[in-house]
Simulated scan of single mutants.
Amino acid sequence: MTQEGRRRGRDESKEERADRMWGELVQEVRVAQTGVQILFGFLLTVAFQPRYATLAHTDRVIYVVTVVLGASATGALIGPVSLHRLVSGRMVKPQAVRIASWMTFTGLLLLLATTASALLLILRVATHSSALSWLVAAVVGWYLLCWYVLPLWIRRRHTTHPGAGAAPPRREAGGDDRAPG
Rank of each mutant, 00 (worst) to 15 (best):
L86D: 13
L123S: 07
I154C: 09
L145V: 13
Q95R: 10
L144S: 11
T104C: 03
L152P: 03
R98F: 09
G89W: 03
A131Q: 11
V81T: 07
S101L: 07
V92E: 12
T115C: 09
S88M: 09
A138E: 06
L152Q: 12
G89A: 07
S82E: 07
P151V: 05
T106Y: 05
I78F: 14
V87Y: 10
T106W: 06
G89C: 06
L152Y: 13
L120Y: 08
H84Q: 10
P80F: 02
H128D: 14
V125H: 05
H84V: 01
T127S: 11
H128M: 06
C146Q: 15
T115M: 11
L119H: 04
L77F: 00
V139L: 06
W153T: 12
Y148G: 04
T104Q: 06
C146F: 14
R85S: 08
L119C: 05
L144H: 07
R90L: 14
V140Y: 00
T106R: 04
A116L: 01
L112W: 09
A100T: 02
L109I: 10
L119S: 07
W147E: 10
R156F: 11
G79P: 00
L150I: 15
L110D: 02
S88W: 10
A137F: 09
A118C: 06
L112G: 09
G107K: 02
T115R: 03
S133F: 14
A113C: 09
L77D: 03
A138C: 08
A100Q: 00
A118E: 01
S117D: 04
S133L: 15
G141S: 05
S88Q: 12
L108C: 11
A113T: 00
L145Q: 07
T106H: 02
L108E: 09
L119R: 02
S133W: 14
S82K: 05
S117V: 03
A138I: 08
L112Y: 07
